[in-house]
């Protein structure tokens, strides 16, 4: 790993609509292993936020515990972040999101953090449709504790110590689809052409947007026999390219050239599914499940936007939450005063 991050930047770095350069979306230097897939995800998040011209301080980064959950330090240094408790970031994000609905919430988790210790909170996060983006950096193993199989490790995958995983892996994308998630995607950390637009679309989506990113662990799961190594992932990758057009850009045609389907998000942004699979529609949950399951059965890794409900109703709508953020409400809006209390006393006599 590097231990020094140069401060020098090209003087003519391009600026986005807000006047920020991509460097304004940097975090501190990564302490993950050199070549870790997670660093590519960090870069994709940084680029996505830059390209979408999101003010960095309007993003709140949340994570649990593990290699994946260290990531938020390595991007968006101008955003507040919260490295919470193992497997319990979903509840922290839920509380944060209802407390201030004006921020954009980005959760970063791992396969251990989500599929094992955090499984309960994860499915309830989906059930509530909390307005946030939730990225799982999925490498099928525990990194910080040195290479144990995680619950997403595939059946038959060989670990660092030569052991073969005897259990069926939990497929988080299928689970999210089954549980009713309003945005489900899968990607590969090595495919930034696909990952960046997916992250941008996820952040534009109203409701819970889930991206399961296969992100190889170079130290403990990048050998032959591991089904989540770079080589195995590339070999079995069945990628559906996507393109993202934010709401601000003028839309000339509803179908971008080469796309098979376009879905408009609630804020007016458009996500295009490119023609890799003519027949795939991203607005059909059943079809999405079948496609993922059949890819899984044949050992392929189907990536792209799997499902999107553009009319999703998020938690804030479901609970009829005030338009003004709760954390901005003052005494006058919150405290009923002495006259009301006196009448309550009267009713208790």
């Amino acid at each position: 790993m590097s231990y020094y991050k140069p401060k020098f930047r090209h003087p003519n770095l391009p600026k986005n609509d807000l006047g920020y350069t991509v460097a304004d979306y940097d975090g501190s230097i990564s302490t993950l292993c050199a070549g870790c897939g997670h660093d590519s995800i960090s870069a994709a998040i940084r680029n996505a936020c830059f390209l979408s011209s999101i003010p960095p301080h309007k993003i709140a980064k949340l994570s649990g515990i593990g290699c994946s959950s260290k990531m938020p330090t390595y991007f968006l240094g101008k955003s507040h972040g919260f490295n919470s408790v193992h497997g319990r970031m979903p509840s922290v994000a839920t509380g944060a999101s209802v407390a201030n609905r004006d921020l954009i919430y980005l959760g970063v988790s791992g396969d251990g953090d989500t599929a094992s210790i955090g499984m309960g909170q994860f499915v309830h996060l989906i059930r509530r449709n909390v307005n946030m983006t939730y990225i799982v950096a999925n490498n099928g193993c525990y990194g910080l504790t040195k290479g144990q199989d995680s619950a997403t490790a595939d059946l038959g995958s060989v670990n660092k110590y030569g052991g073969t995983n005897p259990f069926d892996g939990i497929d988080l994308a299928s689970l999210a689809l089954l549980q009713g998630a309003s945005f489900v995607a899968r990607s590969f950390s090595g495919d930034k052409e696909q990952l960046e637009p997916l992250i941008r679309a996820a952040m534009a989506h109203r409701g819970f947007a889930f991206i399961d990113v296969v992100s190889p662990c170079v130290t403990f799961a990048n050998h032959s026999g591991s089904t989540k190594s770079y080589a195995a992932t590339r070999e079995h990758l069945d990628a559906m390219p996507v393109d993202f057009v934010p709401m601000r850009e003028e839309i000339r045609t509803s179908y971008r050239e080469g796309s098979s389907q376009s879905v408009t998000l609630h804020d007016g942004s458009i996500i295009h599914l490119m023609k890799a699979r003519e027949d795939y529609r991203a607005d059909d949950r059943t079809e999405a499940l079948m496609a993922v399951q059949s890819a899984n059965a044949s050992g392929d890794i189907l990536t792209g936007l799997l499902y999107l409900d553009p009319n999703s109703q998020d938690l804030n709508q479901t609970i009829n939450l005030a338009t003004k953020p709760l954390n901005k409400l003052g005494k006058d809006e919150l405290c009923p005063g002495s006259r009301v209390l006196n009448s309550i006393n009267e009713g208790l006599r």
């Binding site: 839920t94 407390a99 909170q121 609970i319 939450l321 003004k324």
Partner: peptide, 22 residues
């Protein structure tokens, strides 16, 4: 609309997590 949010959590772990986040 409501100037409050009440969330019945899936367990006490999550209930406290929501409080910490908010």
């Amino acid at each position: 609309k409501k100037n409050f949010a009440i969330l019945q959590a899936e367990d006490e772990l999550a209930a406290m997590g929501v409080v910490v986040g908010a």
